[in-house]
Design a protein around this nucleic acid. Sequence first.
DNA 1: ACAAACAATAACCGTGTGGTTATGGTCTCG
DNA 2: CGAGACCATAACCACACGGTTATTGTTTGT
Lengths: 107, 107
Amino acid sequence: MQRSVEIVFKALADPTRRGIFERLTRDGEHTVHALTQAGRVSQPMVSKHLAALKRARLVRGCRRGRETHYSARQEALAPLVDWVGHYGVFWQSKMDRLEDVLERMDK
Amino acid sequence: MQRSVEIVFKALADPTRRGIFERLTRDGEHTVHALTQAGRVSQPMVSKHLAALKRARLVRGCRRGRETHYSARQEALAPLVDWVGHYGVFWQSKMDRLEDVLERMDK
DNA sequence: ACAAACAATAACCGTGTGGTTATGGTCTCG
DNA sequence: CGAGACCATAACCACACGGTTATTGTTTGT
C-alpha cells in the first residue's frame, strides 16, 4: 500500500524516467533500442530506468525475439491518484464529486 | 512549468517529507518543534525537509516570535494533478468528464 | 555456422542527498 | 541582563543513485 506509493513517487521523480513513461504513453509500445535512439542516455541506462519503472509497475515489457517491447501501464498511477485524493483535500473535494457523478452516470 | 513538476515530484518522493506534508494537511499548522517531537528525525533535518517542501511551494512558513509555524498548501499539488491529467490518459478521461460536470454545475 | 543486432548485467565513478552533531542568531522571560 | 527556547545553517559522513564503458547472453539474417 504505502509501499507502492513510495515506489511510484520515486520512479516518477526522475526526469529521464518520466520522459520514458511519457513517450510510451503518447506513442505506445517501444523497444529499448528505439528509446535509446531518441534519448540522450546510453542503452544500459535506458534498461536500468525501465527496470525501475517496471518495479513500480508503471511499465510492462514483453520479450519478442531479441528485442523487448515496453509499454506504459497507466493503471499503475492509481497509488498516486489515491494519495492526492487522501492528502490533497482541495482536490479531494473535486474527486468526491467526480465519484458521485460517475456513480450516478452508471445507473 | 516542467520545472515545478520536477520539484514537486522530487519533494514528495521522500517518505519523511511526505509524512510532514501529510501531517500538516491532517492536523493543520505546526511549529518546527512540534514536528521534531513527533518525528524520529532531528530538528535540523526537519528544517531541511521543510525548506525542500517550501521550494516546491507545498508548504508555507510564517515566523511568529521565535517559532516558525508551517502549514500545507494543497494548491501546490496542481502540477502533479496536471501531469496525471496529461500523461495518465486513463485518468484523464475521468478528469475531463469532471471538468465538464463542474462547469455545468457552476451555471 | 558466423557475424551482427539487441538487451541485460557487471564494474566502476562522481555527486546528490538524507542523516548526524555542532554552532550561531533571535526572541522570550525571570 | 542573562539563561534558555526555538529555528536555521554549517560541517561533515555514508550511501544511494544517475551516469558511463565493457561484457555476456540470445536471437536474427546471410
